[in-house]
Amino acid sequence: MSASLPTLQLRVAEARSLNPLIRMFRLRAADGAVLPAFTAGAHIRVEVTLADGKKDWRHYSLINFAAQPEATQAPVEYVIAVRREDDGRGGSRFMHERLKEGDTVTIEVPKNDFPLHTGPGGTVLLAGGIGITPLASMATRRRAEGLPVRLHYAGRSRDLMAFLTELQTVLGDDLRVHADTEQGGPFDIGALLDSFPAGDRLYVCGPKVMLDAVLAQTQARGWTHDRVHFELFTTPTVEEGDHPFEVELAQSGQRFTVPADQSILDCLIEHGCDPMFDCKRGECGVCTTPVIDGEIDHRDYVLTAREKAEGNVMQICISRAKGQRLILDI
């Protein structure tokens, strides 16, 4: 089961398309009441209805461009933006096609798994696509505190990038925009890291390919973990070579076949099990599960290289079996 938080019923005060891919929502209490506070990097989970009629939850970062302290300490609205994913499981299509101004939506109160850290040094933010949403709030917060911050915002083209005007107002010359169509190729992560000021921290949010590249290149440069903070903004996808495999639950003796296009976690839920989970992207560690037997295809961002090599635990929301069978100690 997910680690649940208190829920709220909020009204959609505004639903507006920012470009062909991104839709923005303003959510408010029906009576205009102040909402629970949040901090930069926080998200809410929104209940969505999938194409098959089932309910599910999707996590969206909270956006704030107001530098006043009370803007997030006593907010009267939550602002989120949703990228349409036609190849996804249907949550973003619900948000784009079915959720309208005036509708009521169920959300969980804000939670922050991607907090800004305090201390000396500057802050460098790197956003890819819709990954701009938590970093926009971080940039605003740093400006409000009078602390150094620089934001690199990368996307395919400017017309598919959201909030450029608001970011320019907040950051001025400390906003660096990279559009692939203008630059003739993707953002140069190596060049950013090579020019990185000593003592600064890097916060990254974007697609898996960006995050993987950042982590590989920072590790190659010997960066310590406390200098790189990240949040992945895409859900797991089927990779080439993914295959069905059997999972046995040692404590009950139950056995299930996990299809190539389904996670172990979703397979267990479908069969009536109630495992603990939260992010479903291999970031939070809530679904860490002991493994008794079988070779693990680790795909998470939680376990250390040593833990992965030992092969005793896995994140069942994203990692899979390299072979035909896994025995889990649940």
Rank of each mutant, 00 (worst) to 15 (best):
Arg201Cys: 00
Leu164Pro: 07
Asp86Gly: 13
Ile330Arg: 14
Ala321Tyr: 03
Glu47Ile: 01
His43Phe: 11
Arg58Phe: 08
Pro120Glu: 13
Pro6Leu: 08
Leu5Gly: 07
Ala162Glu: 00
Met1Ala: 15
Arg141Trp: 14
Pro20Gly: 11
Gly41Asp: 07
Pro259His: 05
Arg255Thr: 10
Glu240Asp: 15
Ala67Arg: 15
Asn19Glu: 03
Tyr203Gly: 04
Ile132Met: 07
Asp159Arg: 15
Leu8Met: 11
Asp278Gln: 12
Ala3Ser: 13
Ser263Glu: 04
Met95Thr: 01
Gln168Cys: 06
Ser92Tyr: 04
Ile327Leu: 14
Thr235Tyr: 14
Ala127Arg: 08
Arg11Val: 11
Asp212Val: 13
Arg11Met: 15
Ala309Met: 12
Ala74Tyr: 04
Ala67His: 02
Lys280Leu: 11
Gln9His: 14
Ser263Gly: 05
Ala13Tyr: 02
Pro244Met: 11
Asp103Asn: 06
Ala220Ser: 05
Thr140Met: 06
Tyr301Ile: 02
Pro259Met: 02
Ala3Lys: 13
Pro207Phe: 07
Asp180Glu: 15
Glu248His: 02
Leu125Ala: 05
Leu151Thr: 09
Ala37Lys: 12
Pro134Thr: 10
Pro115Gly: 03
Ala66Arg: 09
Arg156Asn: 06
Phe25Met: 05
Glu182Met: 06
Arg143Glu: 10
Arg143Met: 04
Ala321Phe: 05
Cys273Ile: 01
Ser17Lys: 07
Ala71His: 07
Gly184Thr: 08
Phe187Thr: 01
Gln219Tyr: 06
Thr106Asp: 12
Phe187Ile: 09
Val286His: 09
Cys273Asp: 12
Pro110Leu: 05
Arg156Tyr: 13
Glu85Val: 14
Cys273Met: 14
Ala29Pro: 06
Gln254Ala: 13
Ser61Lys: 10
Met210His: 02
Arg45Ala: 09
Thr288Arg: 15
Asp87Lys: 13
Cys287Gly: 05
Leu8Gly: 00
Cys317Val: 03
Tyr60Ile: 02
Gly272Lys: 03
Gly323Met: 09
Leu5Tyr: 11
Pro244Gly: 07
Glu270Gln: 14
Gly129Ala: 00
Leu10Asn: 04
Leu268Val: 00
